[in-house]
Write a protein that binds this DNA or RNA. Structure first.
Length: 260
DNA sequence: ATGCCTAAGCCCCTTAGA
């Protein structure tokens, strides 16, 4: 089964691209981020017409995450992360999707960008990683197939960016951001892309600015972390890079893992 | 050090993204 994470950067502006992607790739599960739409304006009718069920956690203008499943309705398990009652960002949605191997737990997450730094946005990012890690630990304890998929806004290694120098002062690459991500992975998760492409050099994001796409000046910030039971089924992982080059594209490309 | 480019809101410029 093909499980995808795709930061659409506006579901309304990206709907033609998304429907085209569903039609052409027929992914089994798609985690969306940056809907930039309220719950009421999520285009569920179009998604259903394409053959997908969905759960979503919207927010006007910013953030927003969803889980789509082909020919099935994902069953919501949790929205939002514990630990900060005043946090009203829609950045985490967890659901269960039925499979022929007993079902898979899917989380669609949109980790805070954290720029500028230092400052409250960076502090929020670091706290959010820790809150995610707490949830992740509980999920591992269930000893099931789990996939934590989303835009982590973390460049894990130096070979995950076209230029260490250009990104050195960015929140995506700070030692604290990396340490948080590394601590999460070290709980026992498998970074699907990294496992299949251990030498790096695989990008999931290309900035709209300064000709980043034609220069192939990208980096890897969209990740799929697999629990041990899910990792046992990992057959391949990659990026559907082609969609970044199409008309009215998101600045992220769909990033996927194939489970047997 | 800054703009580059895009989406959305609300009202044509500002905020935010990465």
């Amino acid at each position: 089964m093909k499980i995808v994470t795709y930061n659409v950067n506006g579901i309304k502006a990206r709907l033609p691209r998304l429907l085209e992607y569903l039609d052409e790739q027929q992914p089994d599960v798609v985690c969306l981020q940056e809907l930039k739409a309220s719950d009421e304006t999520f285009p569920i009718a179009d998604i259903r017409a394409a053959g997908y069920g969905a759960v979503w956690h919207g927010q006007k203008s910013w953030n927003g995450v969803a889980v789509l499943a082909k020919g099935a309705d994902p069953v919501e398990r949790q929205r939002g992360l514990a630990g900060e009652t005043e946090d009203d960002h829609s950045r985490y949605l967890e659901a269960e999707v039925a499979t022929d191997f007993g079902g898979v737990v899917i989380a669609s997450l949109y980790l805070p960008n954290g720029n500028p730094l230092p400052g409250p946005k960076f502090d929020y990012k670091l706290r959010w990683i820790d809150r995610l890690a707490a949830r992740a630990r509980a999920l591992l304890a269930e000893e099931r197939a789990v996939v934590l998929a989303g835009d982590y806004n973390v460049i894990p290694n130096d070979d995950d960016t076209y230029s260490v120098r250009a990104m050195a002062s960015d929140a995506l690459m700070q030692p604290e951001s990396r340490a948080g991500f590394r601590a999460l992975v070290a709980q026992g998760w498998t970074d699907a892309l990294r496992t299949r492409h251990p030498k790096g050099g695989v990008w999931t994001f290309w900035d709209y600015q300064a000709g980043a796409w034609p220069r192939d000046a990208g980096f890897r910030i969209d990740h799929l972390l697999l629990s041990p039971i899910a990792a046992d089924r990992l057959a391949d992982a990659g990026v559907d890079k082609d969609y970044r080059g199409r008309e009215k594209a998101s600045d992220h490309a769909p990033t996927w893992a194939m489970l047997r």
